[in-house]
Design a protein around this nucleic acid. Structure first.
Lengths: 118, 118
DNA sequence: CTGTATCCCATACGATACTG
DNA sequence: CAGTATCGTATGGGATACAG
């Protein structure tokens, strides 16, 4: 006998046991929500993101941006064919459906900081 | 010269570069939102959580519950002094401030599943 | 019933150098 | 400017056995 089979949710080839897991699988990790937060209201170049997030490494920023692009949340636009390159990142329409959630995540973080300051 | 110092946010001895990071530091990881989601509307015993989450190991469930307790989101109540033990987990008042956020995380996961089904 | 102890592994992430 | 390549490490989490 197998263990009780849980109805799994699927997205982009991955399986999740809960709807919250699915969301966290897409926006989880150390940096994705930070990137999305910065892209919430403006399009940014790679270097602008780096300056906004000075403690993420180039490699990690690059990997996370690619993951967000693969999941359809972010679109990468290239404006030059020869160096120096100009590349801009922005939210897709699907990515924009996350706006209220990212904002809520940011707001709760702010709330905790203020709470702790009391 | 140091690199540009970012104004860090602190909570429970940990530092975060962004308010979203702080939230994710508290509810991030593979299982915390799932636990919180199940505790949203009811108090549950350890074994009840296990049955709701058949693919988490005992060790991990235990560690995550302890982390949630340490962060003040969950309270653990013990009702017996000798085996068989009865232990109940529920949200604290602080944990309840996460209710709308956890619900939004769940809702977006549901939304994605339905979206993908089209 | 409610966990710990022990061991192990995959993967996420960091540091640094280098390239188109 | 916008990344990739390479290497190293830390930690999160799984499997299983055992304990109060």
């Amino acid at each position: 006998m197998e263990q009780t089979a849980l109805k799994m949710l699927r997205y982009k080839g991955k399986e999740y046991p809960c709807c919250t897991s699915l969301t966290m699988g897409i926006i989880g990790g150390k940096w994705k929500t930070v990137i999305l937060y910065h892209l919430l209201h403006e399009t940014l170049r790679y270097n602008e993101l780096r300056k906004l997030m000075p403690n993420v490494t180039e490699r990690t920023l690059s990997l996370q941006l690619k993951a967000l692009e693969d999941d359809g949340l972010v679109i990468r636009k290239v404006y030059t064919s020869k160096p120096p390159l100009k590349v801009e990142y922005s939210l897709t329409d699907f990515g924009k459906t996350l706006t209220p959630l990212i904002q809520s995540i940011a707001d709760w973080g702010d709330f905790v900081v203020k709470q702790a300051a009391q």
